[in-house]
Amino acid sequence: MSLWTRFPLLKGYALVSPAVLLMVLALISPLLLLVGISFTVETGSNDEWAFSLANYEFFFEKSHYVNSLGRSILISTMVACATVLLAYPAAYFIAFHVQQNKMLWLIMITLPFWTSYLLRVFSWKLVLGYNGVVNSGLMWLELIKQPLDYILYNTNAVVLTLAHAWAAFAILPIYVSLQKIDKSLIEAAYDLGENRFRTFMRVTLPLSMPGVVAALLLVFIPTVGDYVTPKLVGGPKGLMIGNLIQAAFGRLDNWPLGAAISVISMVTVTLVVCLYLYGIDRARRLMV
């Protein structure tokens, strides 16, 4: 009797093992190495390393770094909220009001998400630039005399651009959770005399909360680490923690410091996510 027939599950583990091996080698162990390196400093010129907390001390001594992390959390929170608020009505429309060609609508709304991230972000620079589409268009229409210089290179530009770039990540989970709602619950609320607003607030919205929460996190977590958008449209005031990490690995060539900033960011993001989840849970209990 062969090994395969004696342990039928073995084959399943064998099938999944290459993907698991990849995750261990290219994800888990690199992340552990990243954490490890963050606790080192170069002691000599010839690649000697020693354990140290210096990178962490350095980070927390520089208000510049701490502020940048705080600002990134704030910007990403704004992005997550803006993306979800903008996406919810569209997801609602597709889930409840599109009867035919639902797939077509979904494909249409998610299609831009597959196109190059770099190009999508860059196109906003063209839109919002000093001599960009909005300014030149408004001047051409003689609605303004001078180009508006406050629309690019600031936090708002970063929020707008990211809310655009991550739209699909908000639409899909919200759509799925709305789609799952048993329609008879909504009808029941109506039959019991609730108005539209209260039905939405007390039935539809709470039932779609899993999707909303997923969307918030799916947008919040990755955007904290973005470095392209702040660089292209953020200007000096819109720079985020990702830019500092990138600089540590590039211009500054101080990898342990970059690793330490990354670890601090990941830990902070995790804590903030826990905080948000707790807050949302409390809010939901109050709402229903």
């Binding site: 190495l33 977590i221 990138q246 990898w255």
Partner: peptide, 13 residues
């Protein structure tokens, strides 16, 4: 769900 920046530098290291 991990920022690509983090994946990138972890692999780089």
């Amino acid at each position: 769900v991990t920022p690509f920046l983090i994946l990138g530098i972890a692999l780089l290291i």
